[in-house]
Simulated assay, not measured.
Amino acid sequence: MGVIEASDRAWKAVQMKSEKQGVSAWLRGIIGEYDDEADDLNGGCPAMAKMFGVVCKEETCLSCMVKMMTAIADRIDAERALPEGMEWPRFEDGGLVRIGDELEFEGKTMLVCNATFYADGWALWCDREDMSGRLYGKYGERVKRPAPEVLDADGVPIKVGDVVYFVGGAGVRYAVKDIGFEPGGAFVDIIDEQVRGSLMVSPEKLTHERPDSWRLWGDDLDMAAKVGEVDKVEMMRRAKALAKATAKEGE
């Protein structure tokens, strides 16, 4: 039997058996058939290539190997493909939702742990430290990515409901009403304690730490003196910091 005849017989056998095989079984089948025909094929490279559906003529070994690897990759893609009418869930920007990705679920950032497919839609099994749940969607429906963290001037995340202050302000308390995003960046909608109205400001202008002032220092000293619990070391530390800040402003 010649090399070409043996190659044809081996290839036809593999081709018939590989119709419903997975990738690993398909590859092992090729290896097995090649081993069985080793004596007749004399280890010929063209024979092996043909088992992958590549006809080796006058091509270089490199181009032949590229085609063989492409055949394997195509087979993997075909095995992973979903049945007609089904679609892997995607984010709003079109990116695939992969296991291990983070997404927005009921206003929280969750981790995708598993995916289940049904006739009319999908379910993503999500988890985090304090909760777990399933996000359902129809085929074609998009998934939201977690909103990026919005940080204050000290690098602390700002959340709706937080109490914040203006950096270098007089200690007026503001509640975070909303957080939004524009092409130029994030903004924070805040409202003061007297509900005089809301302001939209850049997050870097806010802090969670109450700015100190001589007025606040004096109020705290009076209150501490009334209850007899004056922390002399802390009050002195604050006084020095305020004096330094005042001197710097006067420069």
Rank of each mutant, 00 (worst) to 15 (best):
D36Y: 14
V23L: 12
G53E: 00
K57H: 05
A247D: 11
V167W: 06
A78D: 13
P46L: 02
A13Y: 07
E106H: 14
G85M: 04
F52T: 00
V14S: 10
A119K: 12
A245E: 15
L62W: 12
M48F: 15
P83N: 08
M110N: 02
G171T: 14
A119W: 04
L82V: 09
A115T: 14
A25I: 07
K226W: 13
M86N: 10
M1C: 09
A245L: 11
V233Y: 05
D192I: 00
M69F: 13
L103N: 02
M110D: 00
V156R: 13
G197C: 09
G168M: 01
A10H: 00
E5V: 05
M131K: 13
F105R: 04
D212R: 07
Y34A: 05
E79H: 14
P203R: 08
G100R: 05
A175W: 11
P203N: 12
G168D: 08
V150S: 09
Y139A: 03
G168Q: 08
S24L: 14
F117N: 05
G29P: 08
N114W: 09
S213A: 07
P46V: 01
T60F: 00
E59M: 11
Q21E: 10
K226M: 13
T246V: 04
R80D: 08
E33M: 12
W217H: 14
Q21M: 15
C64G: 04
A225F: 14
L103Q: 03
K177D: 10
V54Y: 02
E37G: 01
R98L: 12
K159A: 09
I99K: 13
R145N: 04
R90E: 06
V230C: 03
K138Q: 14
D154E: 12
E33R: 12
G155R: 07
C45H: 14
K12E: 13
D154N: 09
E106P: 03
P211C: 10
G22N: 15
L206W: 08
I76T: 01
G133E: 02
G218R: 14
G250V: 09
K248T: 15
G140F: 08
M236C: 09
V163M: 07
L135T: 04
I191W: 03
M16A: 15
M48Q: 08
C126Q: 07
W88N: 11
A119C: 03
A175K: 14
G85H: 09
R128N: 12
Y34G: 06
V233F: 10
L242I: 03
I179L: 11
P46W: 07
V23C: 11
W88F: 07
P203H: 02
A71V: 00
R75W: 04
L206I: 08
P203S: 14
D162C: 04
R128D: 10
A243G: 15
E104K: 08
R210N: 07
V233G: 04
P89S: 09
E249P: 05
V66C: 08
W217C: 02
V195W: 13
E5Q: 12
F181K: 12
L206P: 03
E129S: 12
N114V: 01
P89T: 13
S198L: 06
E5G: 00
Y34L: 11
L41R: 01
K108S: 02
E149Q: 14
M110R: 06
G43H: 05
G228P: 08
V195E: 15
V156E: 03
L151V: 05
A245N: 11
L103Y: 05
A123K: 11
T246I: 01
S18R: 00
Y139L: 08
